[in-house]
């Protein structure tokens, strides 16, 4: 992450937060669809990022130790485990399989 990237990411986040604060209410009242899209887009994109980090190896798909670790994390998130438990379990399971 270079200084330029940090600045550009910050501009993207700051502008959306300020737009939401100052213009969001009126816009969301007029176009309720925006609110749903704005909450579903992160779910879809983060879902894709998780898949990329879990089963992709370059441009091929693979199941390995890390996929199992993430699956365990998924179960723990679903069971409402604290973040520290989720990330520790993912790391420990993955490391143990790699032994």
């Amino acid at each position: 992450m270079t200084w330029g990237v940090i600045a550009l990411l910050a501009i993207g986040v700051w502008s959306q937060r300020l737009a939401g604060m100052f213009a969001g209410g009126a816009l969301l009242d007029r176009v309720p669809l925006f609110a749903r899209l704005a909450s579903l887009i992160p779910a879809a994109v983060v879902g894709a990022v998780i898949i990329q980090l879990t089963i992709a190896d370059g441009r091929s798909l693979t199941l390995d130790a890390r996929s199992v670790g993430v699956a365990v994390a998924g179960v723990l998130v679903w069971r409402r485990a604290p973040v520290i438990v989720v990330v520790t379990a993912a790391a420990v399971v993955t490391a143990l399989i790699r032994l």
Partner: peptide, 22 residues
């Protein structure tokens, strides 16, 4: 592609700010 991914996942922060602003 990296920047766009970073920006689009931030849409939920705009939504949260709108909810608070109201």
């Amino acid at each position: 592609a990296g920047l766009v991914a970073g920006w689009v996942v931030a849409t939920r922060f705009g939504l949260l700010a709108a909810g608070l602003g109201a």
